[in-house]
Design a binder for these strands. Structure first.
Lengths: 218, 218
DNA sequence: AGACTTCCATATTAATCGATCCAGAAATTA
DNA sequence: TAATTTCTGGATCGATTAATATGGAAGTCT
């Protein structure tokens, strides 16, 4: 698209960054347009609406930006080239490190970005709820893949495992916001994952060598 | 105190109930005085301020009311007459049932009541944060009591156990709000508590009978 | 009955909310 | 240079925010 006319003076990407930090720290509703404009370099209302459309449209853009950057700590969930347990572990540890980092607001924007909402902003709440549901589906898929690959036993205990992981995962936001450190979260994850390990299919001794006997049904 | 003068026409307790439901569902900031007054029977601003002082004062009263009623599901944490594991389990299950119930807003008011807050309402946020810290201390005390009573091993794994339990506990709010049922939460709790059980001090066979031999050091 | 207290309803405060609109300046392209 | 485009700053929109002020009715006490 050939751009003509006077170019905008403020950096749109930096403006999105600033808006992300604000929405992340305070949530959708408490963040006012005045704050947003100020954080973008005191731009005018006209510039704001010309660039972003509305507060809600900006928020949706911020969420997309968040998912494409910080949110990528959860990418392992969808990477089928990874062993399922490693996918889960990488996601949990990466998310812990990200959420507890001091270089940006703590916690997860998707979890806490619109947790206090009046009815008129229900669409905003639904946007994040859908994203959380996507996360749950990803965790569940990993567990089911592990069962299919005969790495986890199929049992009531593994049926519920995705829910435990999701609950813990979403709880990290509260803990990180209340000051829990990366190291503590990391230790908790290590311990939590024993819930995975006690449900693993016990390998026979020298089981690795059996991989040579493809076609042989044990 | 002898009350004189015209008695108020609205029921103050029912007004607190109504305010609790509103704050619980929407959070502190998004709940407006207009909504609050309407839910109390369309009382006047003057009546509101005479009865409650301010929005923040009302919220503090609501939190106290919440803790004294719904929040009592966590009372087992402080009941030293209970075996520590049972105290934890009762708290988790009671909280799950409470948070997922459909007779009131889902989730926990202490966790989500002021999660989206502008800087000027930081005191409100701090109020709930302190309450969450109290919960963590209660969980930790239970685990430490279990170690002291020789029911849990002292180990890095049990050191981190309180953090896992707290993270899961706080995560239940997100899950309940997103529709997770009591049954699912209950099953997750059952499975989560195996993290406790694998750290228990293994009882000798016929250990119960040994309780008769008090004074005998094994 | 009379004094007193606290209620209620109605108006109104200043401030802020998200969102528009306009006029003029500035930078691009032809 | 001229035409075009989109920026900027400032004024402003109606609605809503939390909080006060006023004036009279209503109920409780001595």
């Amino acid at each position: 698209m050939a751009r003509t006319g006077r170019p905008r003076e403020f950096d749109r990407d930096k403006a999105i960054d600033a808006a992300t930090a604000l929405f992340w720290a305070q949530g959708y509703e408490p963040t006012s347009l005045t704050q947003l404009k100020a954080s973008m370099g005191h731009i005018s209302p006209a510039s704001f609406y010309a660039a972003f459309g509305s507060k809600e449209a900006l928020f949706r853009e911020v969420v997309q930006h968040y998912l494409a950057t910080y949110g990528q700590v959860m990418a392992p969930l969808w990477d089928e080239s990874l062993p399922p347990r490693e996918a889960i572990e990488r996601t949990l540890r990466g998310s812990a490190r990200m959420q507890a980092a001091r270089t940006h607001p703590t916690g997860c924007l998707v979890v806490s970005g619109a947790s206090n909402c009046s009815p008129e902003n229900e669409p905003v709440q639904a946007l994040l709820a859908a994203e959380r549901q996507r996360t749950r589906a990803g965790i569940k898929a990993c567990v089911e893949r592990a069962i299919a690959r005969n790495e986890l036993k199929a049992s009531p205990s593994t049926d519920i495992l995705p829910n435990i992981l999701a609950t813990f995962f979403h709880g990290m936001t509260c803990e990180a916001r209340d000051g829990m450190t990366v190291d503590t979260l990391d230790a908790a994850i290590t311990s939590l994952l024993t819930l995975w390990d006690i449900n693993t299919v016990k390998p026979l001794k020298n089981r690795q060598k059996n991989t040579e006997n493809t076609g042989v049904r044990l």
